[in-house]
Amino acid sequence: MSIIPAVAIHQLEKSYLESDQKHHIFSQLNLSIAPGEFIVLLGRSGSGKSTLLNLVSGMDQPDSGEIIVNGINLTRLPEHERTIFRRHHIGFVFQSYNLIPTLTVEENLLLPLELIKRINSTDRKKVIELLSKLNLSDRLDSYPDRLSGGEQQRVAIARSLIHNPDLILADEPTGNLDLDTGKKVLELLIGLVEKAGKTLIMATHSREVIGSADHVFSIRNQQLLPSNDNL
C-alpha cells in the first residue's frame, strides 16, 4: 500500500499581472512531500516562497496544475471548501505573527478550535498546557500588543498547532525577530512539530534550520530545485 503524500504538486503554473505585463512566478513546478517531513524553502525575496505557501494552504489559486494536500485536490475545490479544509488541516505561522489584536492570547488560541467545534473545558486545558510549554502561561489574558515579538511569535506557533492540523506552513517565522529569539522560536517550532509528527514547510532565510530539515529547496528560475545551502 502506497503512502499518500502530505503535499503533492504537479505541473504548477502561477503568474501575476503587473502593469499589463505577465510576471511568471512558477512554471511546471512539481513537488512531493511525505507525511511528517520538514521542508525548508529558500530563495531571494520575491522569488515566490510566500506564494507557494499561500497556494499550498488554498489561500491562492494557481493558473494551472494541481495541489493535492492529504489526498485532497485543492485546485478543484471551490473557495468555501478550501477555507473549510484549511480550517481543519493547516496551521499557519507568519513572519509578522498576525495575531488578532482584539483577542487575548487565550482567545487567539481558542479561535481556530471554535471554528471547528464547540469549545469545552478540555480545550481550555489544552491551551493552558500548550502555552506553558511555550513559557507563556502567565500571558493568557494579555492582548497581543502587550507582548514582545518573540512572545507573539510563540503564541502564533501555538495557534498553528492548537487544532492539531496535518500540515504546518511557516512563512519566515523568524524574519521579525533578533538572532537569539529567532533561534529559540525555531527550536520550539521544529521541536513541537516533530513531536507531534506533523509535516512542516518553512520558508526562511535562516541557515540554522537547514540542518534539521529533511529536504531543502530553493526557488530559482520559476522552479523548485534541491538546494545545497547556497543562498
Binding site: H80, T83, R86, R87, F92, F94, I100, L115
Partner: peptide
C-alpha cells in the same frame, strides 16, 4: 484588511 486576511487564513469563511 490584514486582520480579515488572518481570519480567512485560519479558516473563517467568506460568509
Amino acid at each position: 484588511i490584514k486582520q480579515f486576511g488572518i481570519l480567512r487564513a485560519i479558516g473563517v469563511t467568506q460568509r
